[in-house]
Simulated scan of single mutants.
Amino acid sequence: MLASSSKSHASTPDEVVVACEQDFKPYSFLDDYGRPAGFCVEIITAVAGAMDIPIRIVHGTWDSVWNGLVEGRYDVLPIVAKLPSRLPYVDFSLSHTETFDAFIVRSGDPLIKDVRGARGKEILVLRSDAAHHALLERNFEGKIIPVDKASEMVRLLASGKHDAILFPKLLGIMLVNDLGISGLKVGPTIPDHLRDFAFAVKKGDAELLEKLNQGLLIVKSNGEYDRIYEKWLGYADPWLKYKKYFWHIAAILAAAAIVTIISIFMLRRIVKERTAELAEKNQLLSHEIAERMRAEDELIKAQKLESLGVFAGGIAHDFNNLLQAITNSIRA
């Protein structure tokens, strides 16, 4: 596979020319050395590698790369929002990412929560971008200000010109932070402004489209997609950032839960056995106490009878003595 950032459009017969935006960070942009970089650049490179597709990467503004694809000068754009209005001109692969749009405004201005809230305002958009097309298709009741670069939109708004920017929320946050521009804030996501991103190929290029779809499935199944996503977009998606630790933590928690359940079961069993033993001992003790009390009662009764016998014997003796005295007296 061949990858280059050259802007020359000449290519070998088997070479696929991939055209990337140069100002759509973190999806596609030029790094400090002027080379194409970003999530989509790495994804298309991984997909091409999985399918043994030789590619050459060129770059330009969004408007230029889009028109170049439609006119047949390029073979693939790695990131294009799927819109019904674009279907007559290109064919789309399976989706690789999704994002929602939001309005970016100056800090002192109220947030714009939906397109209706932007009526009568001047809205900055990237020329020929999904936001540009969406506003045109909805007959937006305001003024659309198309520009060629995303960074230019941010600088214009920060300088006090126009009212807002319509742009993907995640990209807007990253762009404002990277440019170090203060005094701007990003509003809530617009529910009906979902961008479904995919690869786009020249209309009718079914063979290349099928290869890209297969390659995308391969990189998603072998973990390469997650690695690239985490690298470029992971900070905005904490789940993917910590996903690799999830199963380890889940296994530890599951093991701890099993040990706890077994411990509780064994403890209950021991308590039950001990309780049964105590109940048996209590029963024996109760029986022993009853026997002892019965023996004590018998002893008391015997002692009473013995005392009664002694008393009766004493009375009989005294009576005999008295009787003997009376008898002796009569005889005399």
Rank of each mutant, 00 (worst) to 15 (best):
P84I: 12
I55G: 09
I44N: 09
F100P: 01
V41I: 15
Y27N: 13
L30W: 03
V16G: 00
V80E: 09
T61M: 03
I55F: 01
T45Q: 10
A46M: 08
N67K: 08
I53R: 02
A37E: 02
D52S: 15
A50F: 03
F39N: 03
M51T: 09
P84T: 06
D101W: 06
H96C: 11
S95N: 14
I43M: 14
V80H: 07
D31G: 10
I104Q: 00
C20H: 02
A37K: 13
A102E: 07
W62I: 10
V17G: 12
A46N: 04
T45C: 01
F39A: 00
F100L: 15
I79G: 11
F103W: 01
R35Y: 14
W62H: 14
C20D: 03
D75K: 04
K82R: 11
V17W: 05
C40Y: 03
S95C: 14
Y27F: 15
G34T: 08
R35W: 02
E21T: 05
P36Y: 08
F103E: 02
D63A: 14
S85W: 04
Y27D: 02
D101C: 15
Q22V: 10
A37V: 04
A102Q: 07
T97V: 06
T97N: 11
G49C: 09
T99C: 06
H96S: 10
A48I: 07
L77Y: 05
D52W: 00
E71T: 02
Y89Q: 14
F24G: 01
P84Y: 06
P36G: 06
V90G: 09
L69E: 03
D63N: 14
G34N: 08
P26E: 11
V90M: 14
A50H: 07
V58N: 03
R56T: 15
A50K: 06
A46Q: 10
N67Y: 03
P54I: 12
L87Y: 02
V18G: 02
A19N: 06
P78R: 01
G49R: 08
S95V: 12
N67E: 13
I43P: 07
S28H: 03
V76N: 00
G60I: 09
L30M: 12
N67L: 13
P36Q: 07
D63V: 10
Q22Y: 04
L77K: 08
Y74Q: 00
T45W: 02
D32M: 10
D32T: 13
E21P: 05
V65M: 11
Y89G: 02
R56L: 06
S28W: 06
G34A: 08
I44E: 01
I57V: 09
V58M: 01
F29M: 10
R73N: 11
P78C: 05
P88D: 04
V76A: 09
Y33E: 14
H59Q: 12
D101P: 08
C40A: 14
